[in-house]
Simulated assay, not measured.
Amino acid sequence: MLMANLNGLRVHYTDQGDPDGPALVFANSLGTDLRLWDQVLPLLPAGLRIIRYDKRGHGLTEVTPGPYKMGTLVADLEGLLDHLKVRDCLLVGLSIGGMIAQGLAVKRMDLVRAMVLSNTGAKIGTADMWDERIAAVRAGGIEALADAIMQRWFSAPFHQTDAFHAWRNMLVRQPLEGYAGCSAAISGTDFYTPTSGLRLPALGIAGSEDGSTPPDLVRETIDLIPGSKFELIRGAGHLPCVENPEDYARILTGFIRDTGHV
């Protein structure tokens, strides 16, 4: 297990593949840890340096008292990449990970040369919606919202699989303070203006059955970046890298090659 001490926050991460290869960095969603990408990684081209991490309050990364600001979460990833001496990475962010990716690309163009915004938005939901979710989690734990979240995360057929129960367990076992803290960060974020100023290769990926960040939201967000591309994975919900890792890896590999990143 690798831990980086970033200004007193111990961040859990993995650093795999070719240490001298171009960096491919993954930022995962609210309520998941870096295992989100497990099924995709074996399907990607050789020669990449692949970095994953658990964001603040998730997985094996330390939990700090909430609420969190999006700028704090962006600074955490910035600090990790500086710690690992990464420059010019291809950054893949899903859900809140996609918001962190937008924020980092705006702040540090030296770190990000290309970006995948997966199942995310420049703004997700409303402050009232997030306030209600945070209050419900604090009153009844993540378990109180788990079934509703699973409906948004996965298509109906996936609910009948054994794997579905593993992902539900992952969700409810995340630290409550981390989940609530990151929810507050999403609530306070509107990246429409800063993201519209980005000029870099960018790809949007959406799931046709996504109840959290519907395809229209993903398309609207990625269209803010001139020259960007958009891909829809049919039959998948909010986590298409879990439901359909083959299509996800195919789309990601195409973007990696199109941008000359391998």
Rank of each mutant, 00 (worst) to 15 (best):
G211P: 09
I186C: 03
M150C: 13
T64W: 07
L44P: 00
G47M: 10
I149K: 00
R113C: 13
V262H: 12
T161N: 01
G31Q: 07
D147K: 13
W153E: 02
V137Y: 06
W167E: 09
L217C: 01
L73C: 12
L9F: 08
L34S: 09
L9N: 02
E209A: 13
S155I: 12
K55V: 11
D128C: 01
I50G: 00
P215V: 12
I51T: 12
D147R: 09
Q39T: 11
R257T: 14
I50A: 03
P215W: 09
D88E: 15
A163P: 00
A127C: 00
H238L: 12
E78G: 03
P214Y: 01
G97F: 11
L217W: 00
L43T: 03
V25T: 03
L73G: 04
M70G: 02
G59T: 08
V11F: 01
L60W: 13
D54G: 10
A136E: 13
D82G: 04
T61L: 11
L117E: 05
L176M: 04
L43C: 06
T195Y: 02
F154K: 02
W167I: 07
R56M: 15
L198H: 03
V86L: 01
G141R: 12
L171H: 02
L252A: 08
S155D: 13
L176V: 15
R152Y: 03
T32D: 02
G188N: 11
M70Q: 09
E243A: 10
L90D: 00
A163F: 06
L36N: 01
T64M: 15
R49I: 14
V116K: 03
A4W: 08
E209F: 10
M170L: 15
I256K: 06
P240C: 11
R257M: 12
L90A: 08
L77A: 07
W130I: 13
A148T: 14
A184S: 14
R52Q: 15
A144G: 03
D162V: 14
S208A: 15
Y68E: 13
G207A: 02
R133V: 09
T61Q: 04
